[in-house]
Write a protein that binds this DNA or RNA. Structure first.
Length: 419
RNA sequence: GUGGGCGUAGCUCAGUUGGUUAGAGUCCCAGAUUGUGAUUCUGGUUGUCGUGGGUUCGAGUCCCAUCGUCCACCCCA
């Protein structure tokens, strides 16, 4: 045996046992997105690296240390997408989708970040997200959040709690950011190592620190909500009002900030305590400045992304493998020849039939074992004897009844009743 | 990137202070029984003990390195 090749670290295979659950969740997402008037957009897995540098922010961890960036044969710097929003906005601008228009878009697929793998965190992971472009009012913010709440409900997920906050406009946030840096710089001795570093990279994230030793210092820090501009404040108040009206429970978390630079005004997260350290299942917010920043006409926008692996682990596993309706057993070379023909004829005749033909040989006994293991409802027996009489033996597995010598031309009718 | 736990049959795991040809269950295969399947019984296949070094008369067991994995930090969905 030669040396075996393993999957890339942090990139998992999704095995046949797991795919039914994925399909169920994906189906629910597609249906819900559609029910709110969103259309699917499919985007490339790779983009020019510059797209992410300009949107996510060149000094963020994602861009600095986590992107799969490489040069292709034309010496272009490309990156595997670490998230979906940048590509979506790029496509919208490129195809004129955003010019004086409203767009409701959704996407679903693999994202890539070179992080150390952990529970709920992989190097190739999957997100489903939506982007609502061209709408500036808080009504769309509320609708979006109501949509996420509906998704959890449809999937029977109850352990998620909603947190909301407002980051204000870019200008207001910059003022606040300066105040925050001033405050923390004045207490530099009390800052832990991580926060010292964040002071220059992303001071807002200090508010999010998990270190208990930092708690007092953070509580006494200037509050973001007190520095909001009047417009953002009114937007936020209205959003809360609309959420109340829509019956969506939430809590305001003034320390909720985002790691990506492009967010403004509304931000929200759905979090759970059941996933260890990676508790954020869905996060999003408004990014009114991004379209212009990427070279389009100024367009208000809001979106969110759901981490599918994280969501999946909260959905009760119940979707099993789809068992075949029938399993065709053949014994003998002649019967095998007739069996192939019969199987194809049955698939033509019975729409939606899941029919497995025995392959791999063995006598009827071995074939019965396989049929039973497959979970099939009935076994169809075709041996030389049956062939001579132009009939098929039908056995209902795990049931008392059996039907001997069914004529081949009436078999389709019998199978139709099983579907 | 930092820290800790763990790598023994396809899967779940035993393996005593280092001591002969490395084990169980499950799965798979064959046979017997059974109303050709499931149940029950009998038998059988499967491992470079993650990899590479080292210590030793002798290493699954001890040491070093490396890779993988899990969890936490960090980051984020």
């Amino acid at each position: 045996m030669s040396q075996q090749i393993q999957a890339v670290r942090g990139m998992k295979d999704i095995l046949p046992q797991e795919t039914p659950l994925w399909q169920r969740v994906e189906q629910t997402l597609r249906e819900t997105f559609g029910a709110y008037g969103y259309s699917e957009i499919r985007l490339p897995l790779a983009e020019k690296a510059e797209l992410f540098e300009r949107s996510i922010g060149a000094v963020t961890d994602i861009v600095e240390k986590e992107m799969y960036t490489f040069e292709d044969l034309n010496h272009e710097r490309l990156s595997l997408r670490p998230e979906g929003t940048a590509g979506c906005v790029r496509a919208g601008i490129e195809h004129g989708l955003l010019y004086n228009q409203i767009q409701r878009l959704w996407y679903m697929g693999a994202m890539f970040r070179h992080e150390r793998p952990q529970k709920g965190r992989y190097r190739q992971f999957h997100q489903a997200g939506i982007e609502a472009l061209g709408m500036e009012g808080p009504d769309i913010d509320a609708e979006l959040i109501a949509m996420t709440a509906r998704i959890w409900k449809s999937l029977g997920v109850t352990s998620l709690a909603l947190q909301i906050n407002s980051l204000g406009t870019l200008a207001a946030r910059q003022v606040y950011r300066a105040r925050l840096v001033e405050y923390f710089s004045g207490h530099q001795a009390l800052l832990d190592e991580d926060s010292q570093r964040r002071l220059s990279t992303n001071p807002l994230r200090i508010l999010d620190s998990k270190n208990p030793a930092m708690r007092e210092l953070i509580l006494a820090a200037p509050q973001l909500l007190e520095h909001l501009d009047a417009e953002s404040l009114a937007h936020f108040e209205r959003l809360k009002d609309l959420l109340d009206s829509a019956g969506v429970q939430y809590s305001v978390n003034p320390r909720l900030v985002r790691g990506l630079d492009y967010y403004s005004k509304t931000v929200f997260e759905w979090v759970t305590d059941q996933l260890g350290a990676q508790g954020t299942v869905c996060a999003g917010g408004r990014y009114d400045g991004l379209v212009e920043q990427l070279g389009g006409k100024a367009t208000p926008a809001i979106g969110f992304a759901i981490g599918l692996e994280r969501l999946l682990s909260l959905v009760e596993t119940q979707a099993g493998l789809q068992a075949p309706h029938a399993y065709l057993l053949v014994a003998g070379a002649t019967a095998e020849r007739a069996g192939v023909k019969l199987a194809e004829a049955l698939r033509d005749a019975v729409a939606g039939l899941r029919l497995v033909m025995n392959c791999g040989g063995g006598g009827f006994k071995a074939q019965f074992k396989r049929a039973d293991k497959s979970g099939a409802r009935v076994a169809l027996l075709l041996g030389d004897e049956e062939l001579a009489k132009n009939v098929v033996g039908v056995k209902f597995l795990r049931e008392e009844r059996a039907q001997q010598e069914v004529p081949m031309d009436t078999l389709a009718a019998l199978l139709r009743e099983l579907i």
